[in-house]
């Protein structure tokens, strides 16, 4: 069977969850630090904290939800990539249209 259930071995310490949890806390505070402590411009802060948010979302997907797991792992991952594409188009597109196209 090549089901690629890397994270499925039983009787093992849940490393991926623990590391994911610590990474998420670290990234949350990194974003807070960039937003509250540094004195970068608003747009620089926005780019950095959104980059951190996407990394955190990936941590959630890969280390908690194990998106690539199971026989359909490739489809699950593909679905999430297409969803990310829709999200960026909807959000960035709406903001662009509402702020600079009228």
């Amino acid at each position: 069977m090549e089901t690629e259930n890397k994270n499925v071995q039983a009787n093992r310490f849940p490393w991926s969850q623990v590391i994911g949890f610590l990474l998420s806390i670290l990234l949350t505070f990194a974003a807070v630090w960039v937003g509250k402590i540094t004195d970068l411009s608003y747009s620089q802060i926005a780019i950095i904290v959104f980059a951190i948010a996407f990394i955190q979302a990936a941590v959630q997907l890969f280390m908690f939800m194990h998106v690539t797991e199971g026989e359909q792992g490739k489809w699950q991952l593909g679905k999430m990539f297409s969803a990310a594409f829709f999200a960026i188009v909807i959000v960035a597109g709406s903001v662009w249209v509402m702020n600079s196209m009228h």
Binding site: M80, A84, F86, A87, I90, V91, V95
Partner: peptide, 13 residues
């Protein structure tokens, strides 16, 4: 994701 994207887009717009 698409549902929350529209609400998120509304907030930012």
């Amino acid at each position: 994701v698409a549902l929350f994207s529209t609400l998120y887009a509304a907030y930012f717009a």
